[in-house]
Design a protein around this nucleic acid. Structure first.
Lengths: 220, 220
DNA sequence: ATATGGAATTAGGCTTACCTAATTTATTTT
DNA sequence: AAAATAAATTAGGTAAGCCTAATTCCATAT
């Protein structure tokens, strides 16, 4: 018996913890869920009573293993639906989030199994994020922000650290796509502007704001 | 702004009206929605205030055009999802109802358009029910229960009047499938048992309870 | 060690969609 | 037509998930 609200709280706690690595604060949750801090305090007490989170008054919350499994199953569903929307329904990668936010709450393990099979058991979503398996395990990846690369590195673009429509649309418009191979030709030390050769053809200039959000894997 | 509960009430009213042809009673709604009659009276007043139904106290409700359009759009989504579940995900026709009951409430016109296209613009669902178009129009069909046929009629099995799992599973088990051609060889006058030749090969005996739920179109 | 500003909690309320019990209305049966 | 029965409505109440306003807690600066 997991309500819609519960699923959204657990998912938000998971994602905030992923970003910060610390306990999740009431105000951060209120901000992401667009509800008042008072509502968050209220709700947290309820899910703490159900042992989905551990709660330290005035300090914040952390998912229990039970809560984590629910959160991850929602994320799994969300990402599988995103793959479907892009691969089968021809949506763009910047159009799928809101729809997947609804689809992720549909309850049927058989549905998810069939969908997973229909998609050929994908391991990443259209933004390069890993899809956890049915047991809640993530394959670990060796990606890092391009910002951490050095001149001369040859890398593959495998994910984004920022999922806003404006960033995704900037990449689409610039014809930068997941899977592209990139050679970092030079880095301007002053402002971290990167000069990159893409797929051995085009040259592109990326600002620091861009390279810190491009996740890459070093090739060779 | 149509809530989940509203969508379910409107759909239930639509379906009950379709079966009975009359105003829909409080008790019939309570029965199908599995809520108390008092809750129904309550809710009906709210949707009547929104002009989704016309309500005559103690007599029942009828959908307004506004309410009908919402109900039909839910039915459209439900049936498109059922097609997807059967055609693309390989579910059986008796496994899709509950899942489609959840998917039908996902809100995105673009999603439905893309899904419709992905499915090749189907006009009927896996049970032979017509899928209304985006404007809420149904193509009219000329189907009738096999019970109304005469000896010697050659017909095509195009739908079911009863959607229970037990009936659907009976048909599957008997290897009777949508699209089968059937020749009515004889009818036992006493109890309306039909002897039918299917696809010019197998002979089958159908009880009255079966033939009244097989919807067919006369061929030629 | 204390004051202060921001974060969190408590108190008290609201709305939605449900409930049971009591009452009223409508339909049958006698 | 009156009585009995069935259906519908009203009255009063609950839980979930939200709100604002008031209060308390906590970290930091003085």
């Amino acid at each position: 018996m997991t309500s819609l609200a519960e699923e959204n709280y657990l998912k938000a706690i998971y994602k905030l913890h992923e970003r910060t690595g610390t306990m999740v604060t009431t105000s951060a949750l209120a901000e992401t869920l667009k509800v008042s801090a008072a509502s968050v305090t209220d709700f947290i007490k309820k899910i703490a009573a159900k042992k989905l989170v551990s709660y330290e008054k005035s300090k914040g919350v952390k998912l229990t293993e039970k809560g984590r499994l629910i959160a991850v199953s929602i994320i799994r569903k969300h990402r599988l639906w995103e793959v479907w929307l892009v691969k089968k329904l021809a949506f763009k990668w910047d159009e799928v989030h809101e729809i997947a936010e609804q689809l992720e709450h549909v309850i049927s393990d058989e549905l998810i199994d069939h969908l997973n099979k229909h998609l050929g058991f994908p391991t990443t979503d259209p933004h390069g994020d890993a899809i956890p398996d049915a047991k809640g395990q993530f394959a670990k990846t060796n990606s890092k922000p391009m910002l951490e690369c050095a001149e001369g590195d040859r890398v593959k673009f495998i994910g984004v650290a920022e999922h806003s429509n404006s960033f995704l649309q900037y990449l689409t418009k610039s014809n930068v796509n997941l899977g592209d191979e990139m050679l970092i030709e030079s880095i301007e030390e002053f402002d971290n502007t990167f000069s990159v050769k893409i797929n051995k053809k085009e040259n592109k200039i990326f600002s620091k704001d861009v390279v810190k959000n491009l996740l890459v894997a070093v090739v060779r």
